[in-house]
């Protein structure tokens, strides 16, 4: 009488969450409106915090870099130092951490509450697969937003470094740009930084969506899931950053 299949299915679903979500990505492509809405709430709404944080991080890099470089009389390389730290490391990592705090926690809380208020099972009862309708567009939106946000972060940071270096400390702005242009490599630095931001965006969105979908449907369960999202994303981002850095920049 008893089929093993269904019982297995309820065990399998959380474990193959990612595969199910990825298979749902095709249907998102057919419905760009769903994606646009999510790009707005995941990406556009994270823009301000990324912009302001990028500016301050860049300004601090300008200050700290100047104090050290001026000891060696190498103030002219300030532009390179600021840009390299941002593009290679701080841009992808800090913006991913901010992204996990701003967008990831919001995703977890949203999905957890949809589960707690029976919206997900209501959708299932209307024969709409919540993984395709709710989860997949959000994953794709996170995946697309993160590299753009990291790019904004690095760009604004470089401008912040210039404001401090050239505006406050008297570094020649021509040298600031020229050193950057001469020494920063497109493939080694910019492409590798881009790859990092794609990986971090994917991992942060995946963790946030999984924690929301897997949350215990009570207020305490959702609060715990949100905390787990931020903590696990931060650990994963920092750990992966070490691994990726070792692989990418190890032999140069």
């Amino acid at each position: 009488m008893r089929r093993p299949g269904p019982a297995l299915l309820s065990w399998v679903e959380p474990r193959f969450f990612l595969l199910l979500t990825l298979s749902g990505l095709f249907s998102v492509v057919l419905r760009p409106r769903l994606l646009l809405n999510q790009l707005y709430s995941v990406g556009v709404l994270s823009f301000l915090i990324i912009f302001i944080s990028g500016l301050f991080v860049g300004m601090v890099l300008g200050l700290q870099g100047y104090y050290i470089l001026s000891d060696f009389g190498a103030e002219e390389t300030l532009g390179l130092m600021v840009a390299a730290s941002l593009v290679r490391e701080l841009g992808p990592v800090v913006s991913a951490l901010l992204f996990a705090g701003r967008a990831g926690s919001a995703l977890t809380a949203e999905i957890g509450l949809m589960k707690a208020t029976e919206q997900l099972s209501g959708m299932e009862m209307m024969a709409v697969d919540p993984i395709k309708r709710i989860i997949a567009p959000r994953l794709l939106a996170g995946l697309l937003s993160m590299p753009l946000l990291a790019g904004v972060f690095s760009t604004i940071g470089i401008i912040g470094g210039l404001l401090v270096g050239s505006g406050m400390l008297g570094v020649d702005d021509g040298a600031y740009w020229a050193q950057m242009q001469a020494k920063l490599d497109f493939y080694d630095d910019i492409v590798n930084g881009f790859i990092k931001s794609v990986v971090f965006g994917f991992v942060a969105s995946w963790i946030a969506l999984f924690e929301g979908y897997d949350a215990i449907p009570t207020s305490e369960g959702v609060s715990r899931a949100t905390t787990r999202t931020v903590v696990n994303s931060a650990f994963s981002i920092l750990g992966l950053d070490f691994i990726l850095t070792a692989l990418m920049f190890g032999d140069s």
Binding site: M114, Q119, G122, M123, M125
Partner: peptide, 12 residues
């Protein structure tokens, strides 16, 4: 099948 949940389960 239609199902009416206790909470309504409207999409908020």
């Amino acid at each position: 099948m239609g199902m009416l949940f206790q909470s309504g389960a409207l999409l908020t």
